[in-house]
Design a protein around this nucleic acid. Structure first.
Lengths: 340, 340
DNA sequence: CTGAAAGCGCTTACAG
DNA sequence: CTGAAAGCGCTTACAG
């Protein structure tokens, strides 16, 4: 590679100062039109590459926004990320993505990196066990944060998430209205706020309908298709044979349905199954999945906007923004059928 | 936030020079053990944050590696990315991820960003239509590149990918050996090297077996589950009713099987279907998918290592590294059945 | 083993 | 409308 081209290379070539070049390239009205055009034209011609590190060192604005979630390959987060991406793209922010896989240490490493790079802000779905101090520390170090999907008590930053308790209630009530009395809940964990909210919503709906909640009918843990598939045997062997399963999310529901089909039963007929999230895949699953739309794109879009607002000095209220879920009824739920 | 803490803050507090602090924090043997410990202890105590922009400006090494693929949420890339991630984590490189969605402009924007940030290298699965000049320009600007999954003729950089022609041949031959004579090929596009290689491999296997390749039996395009689902009607209406379908990838195969099931036929019995990639999901699909393992994790790991080698000055030969695919036979393929 | 000084490539008051 | 100069926070020869 040839000699490194910098502002002063251009300035020297055109007989102007670096200040003028710097202003011209950023379209400052302080520079005469003709000067600006000459400079921009020349910069393009010689292949000048703007050095953001130098600029950022000077201005202490990096144009980088960090996004960290449990697993970017999880389609639930994927939909949130797409919304964030298109929002950030519009304001020409670079976004730095990372998985924490619910490991606090990975999350901390990533946050360290953001601080070292002078990131402008961060959007996160906090790892299980994130103490509020971890979030508060961000603000103290000038890194504004916004949470998605999960909340952290007392962290004092905006949170955008679906109304999980209400949403799972929609699914549970739908099954109850079909006549189901013995309804299991498969997947999720009490270690996340989301997990607690969904379980509470399920319990609440059952109790409101005067139905007995049997602790055995809860199989906590699964959050993936694979895991849903693996617990299908356990589900089918549950005491008193529940006629329906409220699943933690669509992935678990689809895995569970695959397992039920392998066992020779017909999901949607012999056993009713509900999902959560309404991923694209829910509509084309066999049978098509009855599930709860969780507003992923809303969550992503609104979180990104809130962060951008903060970066631009607009006040953002620190509150829980609950997106209202909706029930989408398809083929995986029907009237209860007793198994032997 | 309080006064910004920098190297000189520590130096002043301890009565040493910034040079000593800088060396001590990076564990230089030039600094006496006791001095080093005092410095590190103090830095920790006052919450010093290393400014990578400043360091990088000085050293022109950023610790950033870019990774750009068509769509990070696609499980095929997801598996490559996981392998890259764990390899880069080990050498403490930050990785900057982006989707180009096969849009050249998005890809160019991302590469610009990498250049501006002074990234150390880039791993890419080039967007459809990437001219070799785009790749060559990277090297000229001191940004070493490594390609995965797709190649660009004459780009002069290492490529890591599966042997697509051979792999699709495994699937086609498997169907032929089961007795199938009329085999369709669903999905993929001639616009990518991968697409061309797979189609060629299919044609080659058919011809080698003395079978007629009917152009109508190719339905190009689909690359997602949704798209595979949508063309199932078109597939079932194909002239001469093929008894089997070689699919572009697992997603298309699963979507197609869902569509076939909706039409009242039983995939794996009435119609044989093969996938490609052997995603985690292939094993738990209903029926379990016969597919070709494509070595995603190998591709990712080896590409990351090659790049890291280059960054460390180890010579890397510029060649196509072909990973040998393997056929995994499951339940979605069987003897041919004639439909009316 | 430690320190003084220059410089990475920008941007921003300030002066004219 | 344009230029000269300082400074962002590091690291790296160089000197001692």
């Amino acid at each position: 590679m040839a000699q490194k081209i910098k502002l002063s290379t251009i300035a020297d070539a055109l007989g102007v100062s670096t200040a003028t070049v710097s202003l011209a390239l950023r379209d400052s009205p302080l520079v005469a039109d003709s000067t600006r055009e000459r400079i921009k034209e020349h910069a393009r011609a010689i292949g000048y590459i703007y050095n953001r590190r130098a600029a950022s060192l000077r201005t202490s604005r990096s144009g980088i926004v960090g996004v960290v979630v449990h697993d970017i390959m999880n389609p639930f987060f994927a939909e949130i990320l797409k919304a964030i991406e298109s929002e950030l793209d519009r304001s020409r922010q670079t976004f730095l993505l990372s998985n924490h896989y619910d490991q606090l240490e990975k999350q901390r490493n990533f946050i360290d990196t953001l601080l070292q790079l002078g990131a402008d802000g961060v959007i996160m779905s906090p790892a299980i066990g994130t103490p509020r101090e971890d979030i508060q520390m961000l603000e103290e170090n000038g890194l504004p944060a916004v949470l998605v999907a999960r909340s952290v008590e007392g962290a004092g930053v905006p949170v955008f998430r679906g109304d999980d308790s209400y949403g799972i209630g929609l699914a549970t009530n739908h099954l109850i209205s079909l006549g189901h009395r013995r309804i299991a809940m498969i997947g999720g964990t009490d270690q996340t706020s989301t997990g607690r909210h969904r379980y509470q919503g399920y319990v609440l709906a059952m109790e409101k309908a005067g139905l007995h909640v049997q602790p055995d009918w809860r199989i906590p843990g699964p959050r993936t298709k694979q895991a849903g598939f693996e617990v299908s045997g356990q589900f089918l062997a549950l005491p008193d044979k529940p006629t329906a399963a409220v699943c933690w999310n669509d992935l678990v529901a689809i895995g569970l349905m695959n397992g039920i089909a392998r066992a020779g039963l017909v999901p949607g007929v012999d056993v009713s199954v509900t999902g959560y999230d309404d991923l694209e895949e829910a509509a084309i699953a066999t049978p098509a999945l009855t599930t709860v739309w969780n507003g992923q794109s809303d969550v992503g879009r609104r979180a990104a906007r809130a962060l951008l607002d903060r970066l631009n000095g607009v006040a953002v209220k620190v509150s829980q923004e609950l997106i209202k879920p909706e029930l989408h009824v398809r083929q995986s739920t029907g009237k209860p059928v007793e198994r032997k």
